[in-house]
Design a protein around this nucleic acid. Structure first.
Lengths: 213, 213
DNA sequence: CGCCCAATACCGGTTTACAGGTAGAAAAAA
DNA sequence: TTTTTTCTACCTGTAAACCGGTATTGGGCG
């Protein structure tokens, strides 16, 4: 079915022991795997990786002790030949794309079936990229950020946004612009709708990233 | 007292009619001024500036219809020979420095005395930079940002900050990091203290600007 | 002339953030 | 081994944000 020349060493990094056990069981029934090592924290794994070799890492990118993106980058820096498969229980388009940019070879949702896991593992080990079904679906639809219009804000909205980024409160902004706080509130909410964010924090990040100011 | 060869044209841009009248009165008793024009909005002034000349502009940088920094930049782009004196009722070190970078020749607080105003006007018209007393004091002390240590955040704090920038709530962050919401709250507050900001919005901007993540 | 959008403003309710503390345990530095 | 820093966690308020609506006005456009 596929070329399988050498035995592979796999590492699992996940803070949920249950998941580790599940993956371990799953991998045991997969041929072509010689070694298996599990870690419950990014730090522990990185320490191990400094002295050992792994052909593939199933990396939970939502670890409590490390940022998934950075961890992935670090792995590829220290051990470029190691294939990283991102594992997560939630899939967001931008997150997937980011982790891929940081060197991952695939993205699996934890709810993927055993068959999917195996298939993706093989695919990745053979140098390809692999996604579980749901992830493929998310990647398939050009997901807003690409095809959405540059989210045009009105003059007034930009003014309000500017002041929001300065940490001003709604009331403060209202005073500065000689408006009712309720009006400012409305502008703020309209912007959050337009930019498809759900609070001031994301609003600010959206403003910064898309250079809306 | 100073070289005064030609008569000068002054523009006043301020959304408070009272302030305009005050400045107008003040300027009338100042020799060497031939024309005086007042505007209550940035837009109106820019339109006028497109077809007229001004030697000096007293620019309120807190106009409701325009961002002071941008306005100043625009003025200098359209009319580089025009001297811009920023006028404001509040002085913040970073704001002062920013507006100067955008081409202003001085910064006056509205509470400055008539004598100060005149003195600064003359100074600026003669090619210098001019500040009212309070502003000079603020500029005098090397105000934190320069001499403060690069505000080092701890590992945990960075993690929390990361999630704050993603718009997560305290409770959400707590779940993600397997912590008590109260702990997350504490981290958040400690960071705000360290970075000398007073809310999440400023915290995010500080993180972005100083590349703390 | 209707129609949409921008800008303005309001109500009532729920959730979060923020500010003022205090405090214990573990880890790192002295 | 003390001391300091970091991480953890709590309590009690008040202020602010957020959410679900609705609604009026003034322009611009087909």
């Amino acid at each position: 079915m596929w070329k399988q020349t050498v035995k592979r060493t796999i590492a699992i990094v996940d803070d949920h022991p249950v998941v580790i056990e599940g993956l371990r069981a799953l991998l045991q029934s997969t041929p072509g795997i010689s070694g298996m090592h599990a870690f419950t924290s990014g730090g522990a794994f990185m320490a191990w990786l400094g002295r050992n070799h792994a052909d593939l890492v199933l990396l939970d990118i939502m670890l409590p002790d490390a940022n998934g993106l950075d961890l992935c980058k670090d792995i590829k820096r220290i051990s470029p030949e190691t294939v990283v498969l991102a594992v997560s229980n939630q899939a967001e388009r931008s997150m997937i794309l980011q982790i891929l940019q940081n060197g991952a070879s695939g993205y699996l949702l934890k709810n993927a079936s055993a068959a999917e896991f195996k298939k993706c593992l093989v695919e990745a080990l053979n140098g390809g990229v692999a996604f579980s079904r749901e992830v493929r679906e998310i990647l398939a639809r050009p997901g807003r950020e690409e095809l959405r219009a540059p989210a045009t804000l009105t003059r007034r909205e930009k003014q309000v946004l500017q002041l929001v980024t300065e940490g001003k409160t709604t009331i403060g902004i209202a005073q500065e612009l000689h408006l009712s706080p309720l009006t400012v509130e409305t502008h703020r909410r309209n912007m959050m709708q337009k930019l498809e964010v759900k609070n001031a924090a994301e609003l600010i990040m959206a403003a910064v990233q898309r250079k809306l100011l």
